[in-house]
């Protein structure tokens, strides 16, 4: 499948998790795309950990403001009714449970809801930025990622990269399916377009419990 189509499926499905009045933090990369698919019928407040709520679209040419960026450093706008604050308040909002959901990418995620997305020892050590606080503090943690990395599984029995947080992931959305982290393991609730149970099992190292109400993603 085309890469952009894959991202679109994931972003569209994650957007369905948003509810009216939610405060949401979207991570850098694929998660940012979710904003494009949130229903116009609901009011979702996007939080940016560098210090504001009410992220708006990219500025029009000539209206850029160098003092207004998102957490990835990209120039953005603020919606009417938005608010700026400092880093201490921003992470108070995050750790204090005032963010309804955070959407992040992952290098690895496992059947216990452990997440690894901040470093590969000896290869890539960018730092955790705000990810550890977000994953611990947000009420709901949604991992949005491609199902495999060049064919090798990212949904594992147990993460072997350094963890971002232990046991915090609630939902995993990939182009192949939607999986909920439960006490018993990963519950497969939805299959991606054209994906069979055999396909997703073959691409997943962790055991999948098949939901009795298994259905195809509606996107």
């Amino acid at each position: 499948m085309d890469k952009n189509k894959v991202k679109e499926i994931i972003a569209k499905r994650v957007a369905q998790e948003m509810k009216d009045g939610d405060v949401i933090n979207l991570g850098i990369g694929l998660p940012t795309l979710v904003a494009n698919y949130i229903s116009d019928d609901i009011d979702v407040i996007l939080q940016s950990e560098n210090g504001f709520v009410g992220i708006g679209p990219s500025p029009k040419e000539g209206e850029e403001d160098l003092d207004l960026t998102n957490a990835g450093g990209q120039l953005v706008t603020i919606k009417k009714g938005g608010a700026f604050f400092d880093s201490a308040t921003s992470f108070g909002i995050i750790r204090g449970g005032h963010v309804n959901a955070t959407v992040l990418g992952a290098l690895q995620v496992d059947s216990k809801g452990n997440l690894a997305n901040w470093m590969i020892p000896g290869k890539m050590v960018p730092g955790m930025g705000g990810a550890m606080d977000l994953v611990v503090g947000a009420k709901k943690v949604i991992v949005a990622m491609t199902h495999t990395a060049k064919g090798s599984p990212k949904i594992l029995k147990e993460c072997n990269l350094p963890l971002t947080a232990a046991g915090q992931v609630d939902l995993i959305v990939t182009e192949m399916g939607v999986m909920e982290v439960t006490d018993k393991g990963l519950l497969l609730k939805e299959l991606g377009p054209g994906v069979t149970i055999e396909d997703i099992k073959a691409a997943t190292e962790a055991e999948l419990i098949i939901s009795e109400d298994l259905k195809e993603m509606e996107i």
Binding site: I94, R95, G130, M132, D133
Partner: peptide, 24 residues
Amino acid sequence: PQGTLTERMRAAGFGLGGILTPTG
């Protein structure tokens, strides 16, 4: 972690002996 970084500074500035965080 970013939230811990800002709170560690705040602790120093606000006369606290440290902070307790679930992060990490």
